[in-house]
Amino acid sequence: MRLESVSVRYTRGGPRVLDDITLDLASGTVTAVVGGNGSGKSTLLKVAAGLRRPSSGSVRGRPDRIGYVPERLPANMRLSARSYLLHMGRVQGLRTADAARRGGELLDRLGIEGDVDAPISTLSKGNAQKVALAQAMLGGPRLLILDEPWSGLDARTHQVLVDCLAEWRAAGVVVLLTEHRPGTVAASADAVHRLHRGRLTEEAMGEAAPEGFAITLGVPMVEDRSRVMEALRALPGVRSVGENERRRICLEVGADRSDAVLAEVLRQGHSVFEVRPGAGGHR
């Protein structure tokens, strides 16, 4: 699949949101596009998915089975997670029974919490994101387009998504995703490109993110501090746990899991005093 000299303007004569972008997407690869909010990442994905026509340029070789995770589901979604996946499965050509079975399997794998028969609008951001991911995977897509797929996910589901990316790569699926934190995609992507002022540049994989992070925490006063440290040590991506001279807990975390670990320690009620790139001792 190839995006050839793609440019997009929102208004005639207005500035280019995307400016002469050429991007090759091979089967069995994961391509990540990083950039700040408003950089045009979502517009690029919509062009790749065929949801928006470029102002100039073309998209060639787009597979016919596409899974798409938007930046967010509609805020007033009245369908339940179960009903939505059943509907989307039938839209994608699955029989009713197959859509129901496959939807349930995906929700179980992604670890959805809450009532799957309640309106999606009542779910948390993370659980709504799990529903969006499930609908994209329903029909066995050959092209997966994911707009900041890790947004709102807990540590467990963060790792499930990493595992899914490896499986899709092995199955020859074309994966194009966006993220605003390079460290999140460093271990999963075959190529990382940065979008800035409408232009796309490839980043050297070795420079996309540090190998790990040193995270210093303050934890609530508890009787069994060793149990707290053991729980932190069990988090996916945590390489080591120790204490500094101020009795603050210090973690060494892999770059590919850093965001998920931070989200989880905050959820557990810990305070984050410092995050530094690279491995080594703590201050």
Rank of each mutant, 00 (worst) to 15 (best):
H180E: 06
D154I: 14
D190T: 05
A166H: 15
A155F: 03
R169N: 03
G172W: 08
T184K: 04
L161W: 00
T184C: 04
D154T: 13
S188A: 15
R181N: 09
A171L: 13
P182Y: 02
A186S: 14
H180G: 02
A171T: 07
A155W: 01
R169F: 09
G152R: 07
P182W: 12
V160K: 04
R194N: 08
G172K: 03
G183Q: 07
V160L: 07
E179K: 02
A187Y: 01
L176S: 08
C164G: 09
C164D: 15
V192W: 02
A191L: 11
V173F: 00
R181G: 04
A171K: 09
R169Q: 10
P182G: 10
V162Y: 06
G183L: 06
R169E: 07
L153S: 09
C164Q: 14
A187C: 05
A155S: 11
H193F: 13
D163G: 09
E167D: 15
V175P: 00
R169Y: 09
T184D: 15
G198W: 09
C164N: 08
S188T: 15
V174T: 14
A189F: 09
V192S: 02
V160Y: 12
W168G: 01
T157R: 05
R197C: 08
V185N: 01
L200K: 04
L161T: 00
C164K: 06
V185R: 00
H158W: 15
Q159K: 04
R181M: 13
R197L: 07
Q159W: 02
A171V: 07
C164T: 15
D163A: 11
G183V: 02
L177S: 02
G172H: 12
A187L: 10
V174W: 00
D190Q: 03
V160E: 12
A170D: 14
T184A: 15
C164I: 11
H158A: 13
D190Y: 14
L195V: 10
R194M: 13
Q159S: 11
H193S: 09
R156S: 13
L177C: 10
T178Q: 03
L195W: 13
P182M: 10
V192L: 03
L161M: 11
R194Y: 11
A189C: 07
V192D: 06
R194C: 13
R169C: 06
V175H: 02
A191M: 09
A191H: 06
V192T: 04
T184W: 04
A166W: 04
H158L: 10
A155N: 06
L161H: 02
V185H: 00
L161G: 00
R181L: 11
L165D: 13
A189M: 11
L200V: 14
V185L: 03
T157F: 12
H158T: 13
V173G: 00
L153E: 01
L177H: 04
A186P: 04
L153M: 05
C164S: 08
A170G: 12
L161C: 04
L161K: 01
A191V: 12
